[in-house]
């Protein structure tokens, strides 16, 4: 009993802060969803559900799908880049690992806007990449590298990659090397070991990194604004425009409400994956006969299900 009251004391200040400066203000805003934009951009307080009907318009659904596509692509690219990098770091000598990680994280601590701006300098039609390619004769006309999906995805991947490497690395480094060795001793080829043993056991790290990129990408509006040249609309821009350009707070609130609902579902899905990973690890510990047993068993089981 004593410890549970102590836990309450530990969480009270933080929760109090969130209640006061997040829950109350945001609930006040979300309540606007049920009202209407006034003539000049204020709020008309007559209760209705029209905003939710408007939100079902195919345009907004289309923007949501586009955002999921862009954020999803950025997530996949980030993971494809981050996983081998994290793996390479985990294989390097212990002493060097911290340094390697340090230099992965370093760019992340500089300013987001400046990191994004750097890509404008690199990618524009008269930019460094185009000029470089032209001067060595690879291209004769500058390529349109900026103000499109490619630029936006590059910017998102660039900004969030360090964190993904870190998340995956922390999973890989917790991995018991014996598990891998056992699998290889049993004659499984390296790629099979990777697919059947390493990858599943590092899923929580991948999931954490993926959620981080996806969540921060889908609500982003600065990167589409600066690198997309306004030619791309993502959910973040849509909501921003409702609040500022349209001065339609009720509809902006409705759209945000829906977006938050979708993201909550994704986050809970990630939590489930992470917890499952945790349970597997516990089981592995409990077997106690060393992780070899576990891996042998699971390998056999998987071999069976494969056959």
């Amino acid at each position: 009993m004593r410890s549970s009251s102590r836990n309450m004391l530990l969480i009270a200040p933080g929760l109090g802060w969130l209640a006061l400066f997040m829950v109350i203000p945001c609930v006040l805003i979300f309540m606007l969803s049920f009202f209407e934009r006034g003539m000049y951009g204020g709020v008309d307080y007559n209760f209705n559900l029209e905003n939710f009907v408007r939100a079902m318009d195919p345009i907004y659904l289309g923007i949501l799908l586009d955002s999921i596509y862009i954020a999803g692509t950025a997530t996949i690219v980030a993971i494809l880049l981050a996983y081998p990098a994290a793996y390479a770091i985990s294989l390097s000598p212990r002493k060097k690992q911290t340094t390697y990680l340090f230099f992965i994280m370093l760019p992340f601590w500089s300013n987001y806007l400046i990191r994004t701006y750097a890509w404008i300098v690199l990618l524009n039609r008269e930019g460094l990449i185009n000029n470089g390619l032209e001067s060595i004769g690879v291209i004769s006309e500058p390529l349109n590298l900026l103000y499109n999906e490619f630029a936006v995805i590059t910017g998102l991947v660039y900004n969030y990659l360090p964190f993904v490497v870190l998340a995956i690395y922390s999973s890989i480094s917790k991995l018991n090397p014996e598990v891998r060795e056992a699998s290889e001793d049993l004659g499984a080829p390296a790629w099979k070991t990777f697919l059947r043993v390493t990858l599943p056991l590092t899923a929580p790290g991948v999931a954490a990194g993926a959620v981080f990129v996806f969540v921060l990408s889908i609500g982003n509006f600065i990167t589409p604004d600066l690198l997309g040249g306004g030619r791309l609309q993502m959910v973040g821009n849509l909501i921003y425009d409702q609040f500022l350009s349209a001065r339609d707070w009720p509809f902006g609130a409705t759209l945000s409400f829906i977006l938050i609902g979708i993201m909550m579902m994704l986050l809970f899905a990630q939590a489930v994956i992470v917890n499952r990973g945790q349970i597997e690890k516990h089981e592995a510990k409990e077997e106690d006969v060393s992780s070899m047993n576990f891996s042998r068993q699971s390998l056999n089981e998987k071999e069976k299900s494969y056959a």
């Binding site: 969130l18 203000p25 969540v215 945000s256 938050i260 909550m264 986050l267």
Partner: peptide, 15 residues
């Protein structure tokens, strides 16, 4: 989770 996913502009206007 909420503070991480509420769009900035919403938190900004709300506060």
């Amino acid at each position: 989770f909420a503070p991480m996913i509420i769009p900035d502009i919403v938190l900004a206007i709300a506060l």
